[in-house]
Amino acid sequence: MSNTPPPTSMTTSDLAEILFCSGLQESDRPSAEQVRAAIDHRIGACGGDRSVCLALVAQEAGDHPETYSARMRWALSTVSEAYPRVGTAA
């Protein structure tokens, strides 16, 4: 298992927000490598601009408030496993 560092000095929360707006689903039971690839892909799709990803998170939260909390908990937990050495605060 690879311990690839995060794409930048992002926190667990930052990475979870990016994973949240990716196409990856909890039901996919993604591996750590798939999680890191999905985050890398989403960052690229957002032009490397975290604020673009945050806007997508906000839109999803507004469009699907009934699933927001569960998906964000999953994203936080999944990122913690995929990037075990990342901090939770900036």
Results as ranks from 00 to 15, higher is better:
Ser2Lys: 10
Ser2Met: 13
Ser2Ala: 14
Asn3Val: 15
Asn3Met: 13
Thr4Ser: 11
Thr4Tyr: 01
Pro5Ala: 07
Pro5Val: 05
Pro7Gly: 02
Thr8Lys: 13
Ser9Thr: 13
Ser9Asn: 12
Ser9Arg: 14
Met10Ala: 14
Thr11Met: 07
Thr11Asn: 07
Thr12Trp: 01
Ser13Met: 11
Ala16Ile: 04
Glu17Phe: 05
Glu17Ala: 12
Ile18Asp: 03
Ile18Cys: 04
Leu19Glu: 03
Leu19Met: 02
Leu19Thr: 00
Phe20Asn: 01
Cys21Leu: 02
Ser22Asp: 04
Ser22Glu: 04
Ser22Phe: 01
Gly23Phe: 00
Leu24Arg: 00
Leu24Phe: 02
Leu24Cys: 03
Gln25Phe: 00
Glu26His: 05
Glu26Phe: 04
Glu26Met: 08
Ser27Ala: 13
Ser27Met: 10
Ser27Ile: 12
Asp28Ile: 07
Arg29Lys: 13
Arg29Gly: 13
Ser31Thr: 12
Ser31Pro: 04
Ser31Leu: 09
Ala32Ile: 11
Ala32Phe: 00
Glu33Tyr: 06
Arg36Trp: 05
Arg36Met: 07
Arg36Gly: 06
Arg36Glu: 01
Arg36Ile: 07
Ala37Ser: 10
Ala37Met: 08
Ala38Arg: 00
Ala38Met: 02
Ile39Thr: 01
Asp40Asn: 09
Asp40Gly: 07
His41Gln: 11
Arg42Ala: 08
Ile43Arg: 02
Ile43Trp: 03
Ile43Asp: 03
Ala45Val: 11
Ala45Asp: 06
Ala45Gly: 09
Ala45Lys: 08
Cys46Arg: 06
Gly47Arg: 04
Gly47Ser: 01
Gly48Glu: 05
Gly48His: 01
Asp49Glu: 09
Asp49Cys: 09
Ser51Arg: 09
Val52Cys: 04
Val52Phe: 01
Cys53Gln: 05
Ala55Asp: 09
Leu56Ser: 11
Ala58Thr: 14
Ala58Val: 15
Gln59Asp: 12
Gln59Phe: 12
Gln59Gly: 15
Glu60Pro: 13
Glu60Thr: 15
Ala61Cys: 15
Ala61Tyr: 08
Gly62His: 08
Asp63Val: 15
Asp63Pro: 10
Asp63Ile: 15
His64Thr: 15
His64Asp: 10
Pro65Ile: 09
Pro65Trp: 02
Thr67Cys: 09
Thr67Trp: 00
Tyr68Asn: 11
Tyr68Gln: 13
Tyr68His: 12
Ser69Arg: 14
Ser69Cys: 13
Ser69Met: 13
Ala70Val: 11
Ala70Met: 09
Ala70His: 05
Arg71Leu: 10
Arg71Ile: 11
Met72Asp: 09
Met72Phe: 06
Ser77Val: 13
Ser77Ala: 13
Thr78Gln: 07
Thr78Asn: 05
Thr78Val: 11
Thr78Met: 09
Val79Asn: 05
Val79Ile: 09
Ser80Met: 12
Ser80Arg: 11
Ser80Val: 14
Glu81Gln: 15
Glu81Met: 15
Pro84Met: 02
Pro84Glu: 01
Pro84Thr: 04
Arg85His: 10
Val86Pro: 05
Val86Ala: 07
Val86Lys: 05
Gly87Tyr: 00
Thr88Pro: 09
Thr88Glu: 14
Thr88Ile: 13
Ala89Leu: 12
Ala90Met: 11
